[in-house]
Structure formats: structure tokens, C-alpha cells
Amino acid sequence: MSHDHSLNPETMPQEPEKATLEGKNKFLGLWFFLGGETVLFASLFGTYLALRNSTAGGPSGQDIFGLELVFLMTMLLLTSSLTSVYAMYHMKNNDFKKMHLWLGITAFLGIGFLACEIYEFYHYITDFGFTFRSSAFGSAFYTLVGFHGGHVVFGLSWLIALMVRNAKRGLNLYNAPKYYTFSLYWHFIDVVWVFIFTVVYLMGKVG
């Protein structure tokens, strides 16, 4: 039970995130949580789909959505998914510095995504007068996309706290599961975004 000692490559287990019981528990716990999140987002998507034509005379998705920005956001988030895969790759090779470097890039891309989203909302509100209150469609749109954005904010806070906390102590069996569960959560955010850009933006544009 010497899990508070830093790892050296000699004693590194193959899957550091699942080497301890605590790690295994965290791993499964987060996966199960994601199972619940699936239903949470399904409820939001369902609500959005039910209300997508309820524009109450206001702007519709076809009028306001701009594909360029959404494409940029998609690229940012997809790439951040890959960079966190790279981080986990370096975790398995017990290369802490490279892992942190890739996580740093992940955070950077995440912040970029968030900035785009804020700009997007600002743009809709000021240029189209399309708000949370203007129609049932508006409420559903901002709630669905906003919940996803909230998940991004939470994920970023998690990542930054993790990186700051462990910057000086290196990888060990106590924090490896924490990094790993973060990466799972981050991938899931990407999964949700894939459906958002498909269902909300692309299908919205098609009509």
C-alpha cells in the first residue's frame, strides 16, 4: 500500500489508473456516471428536438447559425480529445512532463472552444436579439448548448486544479486514476458535442 510514493519507471504497472482498488473504483464510478449523463443529455436533446420549431415568430436556427464558427469549435474540441489521448499515452509510459505538456494543450484548446461559444452567444443576442427568453426554441437551444458549455467549464476547472496540484509531485498511483478519469470525462464532452453539432447546427441548417 505504498501508493503515496512517486513512481519510477521500474515499478510502474501497466495500467496505473487501475492498479489500486481506489483507482479501479474511480474508473468504474466515472464510467457509470457517464451512463447517467447520457440520459441527462438525452433529456436535453429530446426537449430541444421537441421545441426546435417553436420560434414564436423569432429567428429560427436556419436564420442564425453560422457554420464557420461551429466548424472551428468542432475542430478545437476534437483536437483536444486527441491531445488528451496523447497525455494518457505518456502516462502509460510514465513520462510525466510530456503528459503535462499535452494536458496543457488540451486545456488551451478547451479555453479556445469556450471563447468561441461565448462569442457565439453574444453574437446571437446582440445581432439577432435571440435570447433565452425570446421563444421556447431559444430556451431549449441555450439550455442544451449551455449545459454542454457548463460541462466544459467544469472539466477545465478539474484539469487545471489537477495540474496545479500535481505539478511538483509527479505521477503516482494516487493521482493516476484522477488524470485518467478526467480524460474519460473530457472525451464524453466531445461525444456530446458531436451530437450537438450534428443535431443542433447541421440539422438546423438543413431545416
Binding site: 449523463e37 440520459v39 433529456s43 420549431n53 417553436s54 420560434t55 427568453r133 421556447a136 430556451s139 431549449a140
Partner: peptide
């Protein structure tokens, strides 16, 4: 429970922040 969580959020937004999920006048249901 996640379905309840979302339902409660929608109700909360309608009551407190003026959204229109259940407001028929603005296309709600």
C-alpha cells in the same frame, strides 16, 4: 434521476429566469 434533474432545471428556468419551455404563448409545451 437525470431525467428528473433536467425536468427540474427546466421548471426552475421557467419560474425564475423567464424561459419558455412550458409557456404556450412562446411555443412551449
Amino acid at each position: 434521476f437525470p431525467a428528473l434533474t433536467v425536468g427540474l432545471f427546466l421548471l426552475m428556468f421557467d419560474r425564475m429566469f423567464g424561459s419558455a419551455f412550458f409557456n404556450v404563448a412562446l411555443g412551449g409545451n
